[in-house]
Design a protein around this nucleic acid. Structure first.
Lengths: 109, 109
DNA sequence: TGCATTATTGGTTATATTGCCAGATAACCC
DNA sequence: GGGTTATCTGGCAATATAACCAATAATGCA
């Protein structure tokens, strides 16, 4: 494996790690609809503000979201629509896994 | 959020978590070329057999790979090509992030 | 200035992940 | 059966992650 390949694979793993949490996926979904401030997301997620803020900083650190300060509020938005496509692929995988499970249940019956 | 939405988002997070490791991403890449037994993957990865075996069981548990026993060997293969598409999207994100970094460096200069 | 609102950071605790070693299991060959 | 090979599992230590509370910073407003 070349250094470049190693770098790319580690970069991908970092992004995946940032995405790999239900709350953060939920936040990505919400930001895909429109940008939100932390307090709105806190309300939507239903957790402590500090928890949501930390999730957002993880997403931001991974370069998946951008933030814009506006008074006392901070508005977060998606940095790259491509992440939505990626999550969409995941949806397909989940869908097929469910289909397979249903099929194997039908087989047993 | 409905129960179905919650279920889907948690299913996606589980898959992302399974993918979110350089070694496992590397294994996915290798299995995309062709199926491999554990000993081949161990050689390619360059880690302990038990380590690779555990990574494979994580991928299998997430429904991302299938295994087929053949004598003393176990051959692993991709369960769903869709995961390759998903990792491809990640590649695009990484590419754009690099472009942005280069652009911001040029800006400073 | 004093106070309320918004967001981030530090601290703590509980839990999860990772990688290696050692041991167990299974299949093959003599 | 005995030995070899391929794989998996349990255990351990190191590290990482997650959620909350408390404290801090930054802004706006009376």
């Amino acid at each position: 494996m070349t250094n470049s390949e190693r770098f790319r694979i580690e970069a991908k793993a970092r992004i995946l790690k940032a995405l790999a949490h239900p709350t953060r996926l939920f936040i990505i979904d919400q930001l895909n609809l429109r940008s939100h401030c932390v307090c709105e997301l806190t309300e939507l997620v239903g957790a402590d503000t500090s928890t949501v803020s930390k999730h957002l900083s993880i997403l931001k650190n991974a370069g998946l979201v951008d933030s814009r300060k506006d008074g006392t509020m901070v508005h977060y938005s998606l940095a790259d629509q491509c992440v939505v496509k990626c999550v969409g692929c995941l949806g397909e995988i989940v869908h097929r896994q469910l289909e397979r499970q249903v099929a194997s249940l039908a087989e047993d019956a």
